[in-house]
């Protein structure tokens, strides 16, 4: 395939029309046939040591972190933060920082502070939360949608930049943060990463004020958020309708990418082998006949997210409300702890 030749247009676009599945809401669970997630793996050797060091650090009851990034006022960890500091979370940071314990701890703390500042963790009653109501106007045209699961049971997050309905503002970043939070909540048991499908197509519909890429500053802020505060969350990145220059650029960069990153980025192969058509929007050659209706989709999504979060949080409290509980336990429906905090793992 040449550098500038995009993959040939799929002609089979209409073929699936007849067996399309109408839908207008997100679904919470992946199909049963995908199986169930595996319980946490056993940590061995240095990883275990490193993990233990991080765990010890955050188990310390006297640990205090600043209330926001520009103040020196310190407060101890609140329950919500302990809920966020799961075993998988710490392992993600550890992996993301190449096994460096010091850096991981620092990054974790930075993220904790950041979550306080951005409004994900509420320290006081009158703090302004980052919730669905705040970002609802951003999603009126459905530029970011959670819909379906891929074959690895990762939730699918669609990002459609061509459906921009607002001027570039900080709220767009907030919306991204909210959607990331929602998508991670949607992760089923045993899964802690997402598949992000980025669509570069230019849409022309009423309400869409710009079909261009977001400005560099917003992209940079978003990237910064994703890198620093959601490490190892990206399972697969699927790029569709890539403009020719980006295509050429990707083609040129591809050989130089880190092998692990390379596996994650999919742009020149059909992604049917990662996502079943029954889980995919018809726009991208799937079978889901999905039309975004804000008044239906958005309230439904928020209630689902809240419900999931509440159930997980109540399970978190049930298992002791401490740092380091496995997400496998929090997301399951079993009654006793499968992976206790201090254990090396199950399998």
């Amino acid at each position: 395939m040449g550098l500038f030749n995009k993959k040939s247009k799929d002609t089979a676009n209409n073929a699936n029309k007849k067996n399309s599945i109408p839908c207008d809401r997100a679904f919470v669970t992946p199909p049963e046939r995908y199986g169930r997630g595996n319980p946490p793996r056993k940590l061995l050797g240095s990883t275990w040591e490193a993990y233990k060091a991080i765990l010890r650090h955050f188990q310390n009851e006297n640990l205090q972190i600043p209330v926001n990034t520009s103040s020196k006022k310190l407060l101890p960890l609140v329950s919500e933060e302990k809920f966020w500091l799961t075993r998988e979370c710490m392992l993600r940071y550890l992996k993301g920082n190449k096994g460096n314990v010091q850096v991981s701890i620092q990054k974790l703390e930075e993220s904790l502070v950041w979550r306080r500042e951005v409004g994900l963790t509420l320290l006081s009653k009158d703090a302004k939360p980052l919730d669905a109501d705040l970002v609802a106007p951003e999603n009126e045209t459905g530029k970011e949608v959670i819909l379906g699961f891929d074959q690895e049971r990762r939730p699918l997050l669609y990002m459609k930049n061509g459906r921009q309905n607002t001027e570039a503002s900080f709220r767009q970043v907030q919306q991204l943060i909210y959607m990331m939070e929602a998508a991670t909540t949607f992760c089923p048991q045993g899964v802690d990463s997402l598949t992000v499908l980025i669509d570069f197509k230019h849409y022309k519909e009423p309400g869409i004020i710009s079909d261009k890429m977001p400005p560099m500053s917003i992209s940079k802020l978003s990237l910064n958020v994703m890198q620093n505060h959601y490490p190892e969350r990206l399972g697969k990145g699927i790029l569709v309708n890539i403009p020719w220059f980006a295509w050429a650029f990707l083609k040129m960069m591809y050989p130089f990418l880190d092998p692990e990153t390379r596996q994650k980025a999919i742009f020149d192969e059909p992604f049917e082998k990662y996502i079943e058509p029954s889980q995919l929007d018809a726009l991208y050659n799937g079978e889901l006949n999905f039309h975004y209706k804000h008044e239906i989709y958005w309230p439904d999504l928020t209630t689902k997210v809240n419900k999931l979060k509440e159930s997980q949080y109540s399970r978190f409290l049930k298992f002791g409300g401490t740092v380091g509980i496995s997400e496998f336990d929090l997301k399951g429906d079993h009654d006793e702890l499968i992976c206790p905090v201090e254990s090396q793992g199950v399998i």
């Binding site: 926001n68 990034t69 520009s70 103040s71 950041w114 500042e117 940079k220």
Partner: peptide, 24 residues
């Protein structure tokens, strides 16, 4: 961005200097 290139950290420094929290 229009006048030069800045990283997000550098932008945040503007806020930190005046004791504001950029992310909220």
């Amino acid at each position: 961005d229009r006048i030069g290139s800045f990283t997000t950290e550098e932008v945040c420094d503007f806020f930190k200097h005046f004791k504001r929290s950029p992310w909220s």
